[in-house]
């Protein structure tokens, strides 16, 4: 059996924020296979989030490479990386990624609207995704008017509305209680499996990591070990 080529592959990533500061990444190597769910764990400050930012093209590494298919993300222009974020990648953070001024429906429709989809179509898809994550009833509310769990599900709907190839989730349940967290994680896993979306899931919580097929542990800016096996779907 041959393993398919990875969806995203990062090699020898080095990244530091400003001179004089210890690098957040020092030679991290990681790959994400198509459709797999990979948990990245590690103590706080180990460089997990920076790794996610590099792989999703939000920041560019100081050195090393990030390959997405045949494309070098670390060398892509800001415009191209923005385009990828609204077409082929989805991003979910612990909180704060929703636009506070927009309703849940507009928030979910945002990537489509930015890409030039007509308002009607965008709202249609957005409504469907809200439905799937069980927050249709909150469509007209703004993020400040929802509970944390509802907000995260709206954020997930927004990340998934473009049926991305990869979903980047940084502590998506970090600000939630365990029941709300469980609902968000279950919704995330089901949606990702159905759309064939690969997920890079950052967490410090083993119970969240247990939703993943594979776990990579980051220590001091490098991947220190992996558990679990790549699941080919």
């Amino acid at each position: 059996m041959t393993t398919p080529p990875p969806l995203i592959e990062a090699r020898d990533l080095v990244k530091s924020y400003g001179a004089g500061q210890a690098p957040a990444l020092r030679g991290a190597i990681l790959h994400l296979a198509p459709g797999e769910i990979l948990a990245v764990t590690g103590p706080s400050g180990s460089g997990k989030s920076t790794l996610l930012h590099c792989l999703s093209g939000i920041v560019t590494p100081d050195s090393g490479s990030v390959r997405y298919g045949s494309e070098r993300l670390d060398q892509a222009t800001e415009t191209r990386r923005s385009e990828l974020r609204r077409t082929e990648f989805g991003v979910v953070f612990q909180f704060g990624q929703l636009v506070g001024e927009l309703t849940a429906l507009d928030n979910v429709a945002l990537p489509l609207l930015l890409a030039g989809t007509s308002r009607k179509k965008a709202h249609e898809s957005a409504g469907e995704w809200l439905e799937r994550f069980g927050v249709r009833g909150q469509a007209a509310l703004r993020p400040g008017e929802m509970s944390g769990g509802q907000g995260q599900r709206v954020a997930l709907a927004r990340a998934m509305v473009t049926r991305p190839k990869a979903l980047f989730a940084d502590e998506p349940t970090g600000a939630l209680d365990s029941l709300a967290g469980e609902q968000v994680m279950t919704a995330l896993v089901h949606a990702a499996r159905e759309s064939g979306t690969a997920v890079l899931l950052i967490t410090h919580d083993a119970q969240v990591a247990a939703y993943a097929d594979r776990e990579a542990t980051v220590r001091d800016g490098a991947v220190a070990g992996e558990t679990g096996a790549e699941v080919i779907r």
Binding site: E83, V99, G100, A115
Partner: peptide, 12 residues
């Protein structure tokens, strides 16, 4: 807000 838009894929 602008950062959130950027995150959703808006170009600068």
């Amino acid at each position: 807000r602008l950062a959130a838009l950027r995150l959703a894929g808006a170009t600068p």
